Every structure is written in structure tokens, then in C-alpha cells.
Measured scan of single mutants.
Amino acid sequence: MAAAAAAGAGPEMVRGQVFDVGPRYTNLSYIGEGAYGMVCSAYDNVNKVRVAIKKISPFEHQTYCQRTLREIKILLRFRHENIIGINDIIRAPTIEQMKDVYIVQDLMETDLYKLLKTQHLSNDHICYFLYQILRGLKYIHSANVLHRDLKPSNLLLNTTCDLKICDFGLARVADPDHDHTGFLTEYVATRWYRAPEIMLNSKGYTKSIDIWSVGCILAEMLSNRPIFPGKHYLDQLNHILGILGSPSQEDLNCIINLKARNYLLSLPHKNKVPWNRLFPNADSKALDLLDKMLTFNPHKRIEVEQALAHPYLEQYYDPSDEPIAEAPFKFDMELDDLPKEKLKELIFEETARFQPGYRS
């Protein structure tokens, strides 16, 4: 834990890192770190609560700039109880001085990944967590956004079992017609939660990839272990087919990539493993919904509104309290091709509203 900075004593240090967030945020305490930044909790002297502050230093890398800009653009436009918001952003007053960006968010005690390492969940908890994931996802999908990296560590939890989806750095506007060349190379989302079509096709992607990830998360809540822990690309596919069985001819016809289709045709026939054999203690309604989410063919996979209306979630289902976005989200430009200098300018502009004396 960093010592509390005395008023006016300059930035606090946390594990050798400068955290320049005073005077409003003090009493910093280390939480963890990701690929390009550290997260601390801090005391907000204005709202009198502890908050989470993520320090991001992305400006050396085009990919990190892209992810940072995506996350900020999306989260500043989203407003939903099951999606983490941005409360404040701290950065230098000029673009030349801006080396880091500090993002202030609600402090959540833990995440689903940490929880599943230590606790076996009751059916009631599984049901409530799944409902909140789908409630947040309904809003995301209504904005025409794909999260693309749903996994237990991106689901934040607090002691009252509130759940918030975080990390929109890989999110995209849904565009089933656009052929994202190089899709697989830039697709760094965790393999275990990846839909089979991501490994088999490169053309376009749809909201059904997020539903697949939610199915993987439900299976993990039922058993405290990942359902498809593939060691590499082909191993991942083999794990999936080992449980779902061989795809039907109709399902194979959806695979545009001939090499991928021929690979699947070359494999020995596998039978589907019954879900109640894998999860003998699970609620039968939970397994019915799991089956509809972990469907090989993305066109037959359940959609988020149908999933919310499934009998497993009937005690929570309330369409009048499951809000959607006001308007579909649009990125003005494809960020993939922009140089990091341009992305830095866009991050600077996007964060201006939090600067003292800002006038829109």
C-alpha cells in the first residue's frame, strides 16, 4: 500500500510507478496490472468513496492506442447498470505532455475469474450472474457493438453480487458484411471463450460470437473449470467437437473457408456428449439454455433477447427493466489503419471533457 500523499506533496508512487492523480484522489492501494497499465484503488475526496484507477501508458504502440481509444469512446457513450462506466479521466493539459491516461471507475471487490478459483456457486448465484451478463449484453448488442472478449476476468463483482462487464478494448461495431482481413492475426481474445466460426472463417462476425462466450462462462460457473481449455488453435476446435459432436452437413455448409471445411470433413465422426453427463448436478433449465448458447452453427445460436426470456431466468426476466441503447454506435473511421500519432490526438480530444474549465 502506498503511503497517503500529504496535501501538495506531488504524485504518489505505487510499486515504483508514478500515479499522478492528486489532489482529488489519494490513499492509493495496488490492485493489479494488465498488459499496459496498473490498477489501484484510491480515495475520492470529492465523492467520499474509494474508486478504481487504471493507469494506461499506450502511446508507444499502435495496438494499445487503438484499444484505449475504443474503450474510452464506447464506455463514455454507454450507460447501463451492468456495464462499468467511466467516472473521470485524468491526463496532462497538453498533448505533448500526455504520456499516461488515468481512467477512474467504480471500485468492484472482485471478478468472476477470482471468485470461481475459490468458491463453488449455488444455482441461485449462477442464475443471477447469468441474468446480469445477458442484461448488459442486450444493451451492448442493441448499440450494434460486439464485445468480443467476454470471459470471467472481464466480469466485475461486488459483495452485493452486482455484476458489471468491463474491458471493451477489443470491441467492434457489428459488421457481418465487412471482410476484416487479418482478423485472426489481430484477434487476441482469450482462445477458450472463442466461437468456432472465428477459427473457421475470417469473413465478418456477428453478435452470436458473444453468446458463445457467455455459454462458455455459464459452463464454467457450473463446474469451476473452463469447458474448452484448448492449448492452441486446432486443439481448441477438437475440444469443442469432442463435446458438441461432429457438425451436420448443414452446419458445414455455413463454413465459407474450404480449407477449414475440408479439415472438419477429414475428422472421424464424434457423438455429442449429453450435458447432464458433463454437469450431473446442474439445473435442467440451465443445461437447456447452455445447449442453445453453445450451438456450433452461429445462425442457430440463441440471441440475447431470447436467452433473457428463457425459463431458467424467469424469476428475473423483465423486458421493461432491460434497457437498450438510445442509438446504434458508430465509429467515424476504422481505427485499425491509423498511425499511433493520430490515435493519440483522438484520445486527447475524447478525454477533453474531463479537463478543468472544459467548454463543449
Rank of each mutant, 00 (worst) to 15 (best):
A3P: 14
A3N: 15
A3I: 15
A5W: 07
A7C: 08
G8C: 12
G8D: 15
A9C: 15
R15C: 12
F19Y: 00
F19P: 02
V21P: 12
G22V: 00
G22R: 02
Y25G: 04
T26E: 07
N27C: 12
Y30W: 15
I31K: 14
G32A: 09
G32M: 05
E33S: 15
E33K: 01
G34H: 14
A35N: 03
A35R: 06
G37F: 02
M38K: 00
V39H: 03
V39W: 04
C40Q: 08
C40P: 15
A42E: 04
Y43V: 12
K48T: 08
V49L: 04
A52F: 04
A52M: 00
A52C: 04
I53N: 01
K54T: 03
K55S: 09
F59E: 04
E60M: 10
Y64H: 06
Q66K: 00
T68Q: 11
T68S: 00
T68W: 09
T68R: 05
E71F: 07
I74T: 08
L76P: 09
L76A: 13
R79K: 04
R79S: 01
H80C: 15
H80M: 13
N82P: 06
G85V: 01
I86H: 11
D88K: 14
I90Y: 15
T94C: 07
T94W: 11
I95G: 14
E96C: 14
K99R: 06
D100W: 14
D100Y: 00
V101M: 00
Y102A: 09
I103R: 03
I103G: 08
V104R: 06
Q105H: 01
D106P: 15
D106F: 15
M108A: 09
D111R: 04
D111L: 05
L112C: 11
L112S: 08
K114E: 04
K114A: 07
K117T: 12
K117I: 13
K117Y: 12
T118G: 09
Q119A: 07
Q119H: 03
N123A: 10
N123F: 10
H125G: 02
C127Y: 01
Y128V: 07
I133D: 03
I133M: 10
I133C: 10
L134Q: 00
R135T: 14
R135H: 05
G136W: 00
K138D: 09
I140K: 02
H141G: 09
S142M: 13
S142Q: 11
S142I: 14
S142T: 03
N144D: 04
L146G: 05
S153W: 03
S153P: 15
L155Y: 06
L155N: 10
L155S: 08
L156S: 04
L156F: 04
L156P: 05
C161E: 02
C161G: 14
L163M: 06
L163N: 09
K164A: 09
I165H: 08
C166W: 08
G169D: 02
L170S: 10
P176A: 04
D177L: 06
H178V: 07
D179C: 10
D179E: 02
H180R: 09
L184A: 01
E186K: 01
E186V: 03
E186W: 07
A189H: 05
A189R: 02
T190C: 07
T190A: 02
R191H: 04
R194S: 00
E197W: 03
I198R: 03
M199S: 05
M199L: 00
M199T: 11
S202I: 02
K203P: 02
T206L: 01
T206D: 10
S208Y: 00
S208C: 07
W212P: 01
W212Y: 02
W212C: 00
G215V: 00
C216G: 04
I217L: 04
I217T: 09
L218I: 06
L218Y: 09
E220N: 05
M221W: 08
M221P: 02
N224H: 08
P226Q: 05
F228T: 11
G230C: 00
L234R: 09
D235I: 04
N238P: 02
H239C: 09
I240Q: 09
I240A: 07
I243C: 14
I243Y: 14
L244Q: 02
S246D: 15
S248L: 07
Q249I: 11
N253R: 07
C254E: 13
I255K: 10
I256V: 07
K259F: 03
R261A: 07
R261G: 05
R261M: 08
N262L: 06
Y263P: 09
L264Y: 08
L264W: 10
L265A: 09
L265G: 12
S266N: 06
S266R: 00
P268Y: 09
H269C: 10
N271C: 09
K272F: 11
K272E: 07
V273F: 12
N276L: 11
R277T: 09
R277F: 12
R277S: 00
F279T: 15
N281G: 14
A282D: 01
D283G: 13
K285R: 04
K285P: 09
L287S: 04
L287M: 00
L290I: 12
L294V: 07
P298V: 10
E303T: 14
V304S: 11
A307Q: 06
L308E: 12
Y312S: 09
L313Q: 01
E314N: 15
Q315Y: 09
Y316M: 11
Y316F: 00
D318K: 14
D318L: 10
P319A: 11
P319D: 10
P319L: 06
D321H: 14
P323R: 13
P323K: 14
P323Y: 14
A327M: 11
A327T: 09
F331W: 15
M333E: 12
E334D: 00
D336T: 04
D337I: 07
D337P: 11
L338C: 11
L343F: 13
K344S: 10
E345L: 12
L346E: 07
F348R: 10
E350D: 00
T351H: 14
A352C: 13
R353I: 00
F354H: 05
F354L: 02
Q355W: 10
R359M: 01
